[in-house]
Design a protein around this nucleic acid. Structure first.
Lengths: 194, 194
DNA sequence: GTCTATAGAAGGATAGAC
DNA sequence: GTCTATCCTTCTATAGAC
């Protein structure tokens, strides 16, 4: 049933990925997915047990793709605080929301199959931030009292919360302000530069 | 039509307030609202033009209530950074999400009537944080290079992003970690205490 | 594997009596 | 103002042919 080689299966998952980002889970119907993918009813229910499983497959692919993007932002041979800065200031489509975490508040997210890919994505970012901050601390690039783990969580929250601010104010500048504040706070806990 | 004195109207809005927080906009149907409120179909469509207007009325009331709660956290006669700290560390139901901003990613939020109460609420918090940080800066309680406006946005984003982290990990501790990081960062940009 | 046709339930709103 | 009954559409899934 989960044969990745099938053409229609791939088209269905691709359409689901696009629609989940555009509209979210509740607002996307199986018919929407079929219309966009060009597949018929039968193909969807041949490959998947229903809407939920389609979404789970789509989210798993999105998480894999975005985790690869994150890894590219954290090359091991660069200064650790540069990696953190690169993550904070990367380009983002603020008004579209986070491709994965945009689903955080849907009722369906209480289902583990849908929540886990999103949790893995955010967990991966948080781990990368924490590792970088720990490396910075070991190299005395961070102020002594600063704990990497909570600060990593706070920086990730600034980004995810920044998406929320942009959506609510319908203005990408709201996210940029939050990121700018994060950059200032990070600079303040960094060792004075040479 | 918008007569506030009507008993059923109030019951409908109260039910909508509860359901919007519990399930969000898309996942709440007019029938759900009627079932919980005890009103009939006719009452809803007598007082409102439809689902959207019910939600708008509910959000407006929620914003008003929550803004009053925020104001209570920022009494003018306390040290400004204590006010910011009180906001960061107030008790929250992390897994339920922010009562207003939990709707940020719903497609319906592109409608101004729904977005505006949420934007007013977040804007009010951000203004209170910014004013407190400006007062702290004027009193030399903040490091010189720190700009109040972006830092206020970042702190608000930490809270709103913290809700997202808690929902995605299905663990209130994820939000606590982000808040803790925010507290540490704020302490780092504050003047060393006497 | 893929298609079209269909079914049962829920969503959102209206009609009209009281 | 409030109620019940009804309507049309959309949602989600199944049936069965090819």
């Amino acid at each position: 049933m989960a044969r990745p080689g099938s053409s229609k299966r791939e088209a269905i998952v691709a359409a689901a990925k696009a629609l989940l980002w555009e509209r979210g889970y509740e607002a996307t119907s199986p018919r929407d997915v079929l219309d966009r993918s060009g597949a018929g009813q039968g193909s969807l229910y041949h490959h998947f047990s229903g809407k939920r499983e389609v979404a789970a497959a789509a989210l798993a692919e999105m998480a894999e793709e975005e985790i690869a993007v994150i890894d590219a932002l954290f090359p091991p041979d660069t200064p650790p605080l540069d990696r953190v800065g690169a993550y904070l200031t990367r380009e983002r489509q603020a008004l579209r929301g986070c491709r994965l975490a945009r689903l955080a508040n849907e009722a369906a997210m209480e289902e583990p199959a849908l929540r886990e890919p999103v949790a893995a994505y955010l967990g991966h970012i948080e781990a990368a931030l924490r590792a970088s901050l720990e490396e910075a601390k070991a190299g005395a690039d961070l102020l002594p009292g600063i704990e990497p783990a909570p600060v990593a969580a706070a920086l990730l929250a600034i980004v995810e919360g920044g998406y929320v601010l942009a959506r609510v104010h319908w203005d990408a500048a709201a996210m940029r302000a939050a990121i700018d504040g994060g950059v200032q706070l990070l600079a303040a806990v960094s060792r004075p530069q040479a």
